[in-house]
Design a protein around this nucleic acid. Structure first.
Length: 289
DNA sequence: ACCGGAGCCTGTTAGC
DNA sequence: TGCTAACAGGCTCCGG
């Protein structure tokens, strides 16, 4: 489910309740949820580690811990993270639980108890019905995210960078946008939405774009991702914010899962085709080849 | 280098 | 209503 905007929304919501807190243990009833190391080693290494920062890289949540450890979580299709009081009965699809000691905030000159945290002991629940999600504990995050392409919302990602990366590829644009080593964070919703915004057909070969079309694609990628973040994610299927509330991006999509409905720009029915094994939605009139 | 298909999982929905 | 098949926002592996 979650793409860059959904992961970013999750990261932002988790910072207040989690940064500064100490992980005291891990419970798990589906060991394959833990990609690396083994469950036993994870439990041994993570106990006592404090969460110093929470960031995002592509679709990964990156928890920077003390003692040079980094916890990464990928939500894949159906992962969901929430912070709950200790002892909250886990949902049947909650497979990994991080136990947390009382909240502490870092302040100049030391640390104080987190005045906002009513939950003095709590748990981070990783709920994941389809069990595709994964947890990683590594000393060097590059082991996990080292091959990812550029971050589309960072200033380093310019039209020139996009042009350089498109050059030499003749793959379909849709396929490339889903390739996390090409660009990090774009998934099926935002790929379709970006191509519609840029008026580019999903099957256009990457190396066929004019400079103006590359500019348009770059702007469209940033526009749809920022819109997704502003609207706190697309709750088209299962995605929910950590507090369980829906995002609002599902009310702002132009083509995704709008097969047969009129294009908002020209009225032509939106078509669905399969590209790279993924559902692809586009306007055959606005997005010409 | 590229493409399609299977596989990982469970739940929901569309169609008969 | 009940059953079955298709489909799902991700990603990897394997064969051609």
């Amino acid at each position: 489910m979650p793409e860059l905007p959904e992961v970013e929304t999750t990261v932002r919501a988790l910072r207040e309740p989690l940064v500064g807190r100490v992980i005291t243990g891990v419970r798990n009833d589906w060991p394959r949820h833990i990609a690396t190391p083994t469950l036993e080693e994870l439990q041994a290494r993570i106990g006592g580690r404090r969460i110093e920062a929470i960031d995002r890289r592509g679709k990964y949540l990156v928890f920077r811990l003390d003692a040079d450890e980094t916890l990464l979580i990928h939500l894949k299709m159906t992962g969901h993270l929430s912070v709950v009081p200790s002892g909250t009965p886990p949902d049947k699809h909650t497979h990994t639980i991080f136990e947390l000691a009382g909240g502490k905030w870092q302040v100049a000159g030391g640390e104080i108890q987190n005045p906002k945290s009513k939950i003095q002991n709590g748990e981070l629940h990783f709920n994941d019905p389809r069990k595709f999600g994964r947890v990683y504990l590594v000393r060097d995050p590059a082991e996990v995210v080292g091959d990812l392409g550029p971050e589309p919302l960072e200033p380093e990602f310019t039209p020139a960078v996009l042009a350089e990366r498109l050059r030499g590829h003749k793959k379909a644009l849709k396929t490339l946008l889903l390739d996390q080593t090409f660009l990090a964070g774009v998934g099926n919703i935002y790929a379709d939405e970006a191509l519609f915004e840029a008026r580019l057909h999903p099957l256009r070969p990457a190396n066929s774009l004019s400079a103006a079309e590359i500019e348009a694609l770059h702007a469209a990628i940033q526009y749809v991702l920022e819109l997704g973040i502003t609207r706190e994610g697309a709750s088209i299927d299962r995605y929910r914010k950590p507090d369980g509330e829906k995002g609002d991006m599902q009310n702002a999509v132009s083509v995704f899962r709008r097969t047969g409905y009129p294009c908002f720009r020209c009225g032509t029915p939106i078509l669905r085709m399969v590209v790279g094994g993924r559902s692809t939605h586009f306007c055959p009139e606005c997005q010409t080849r």
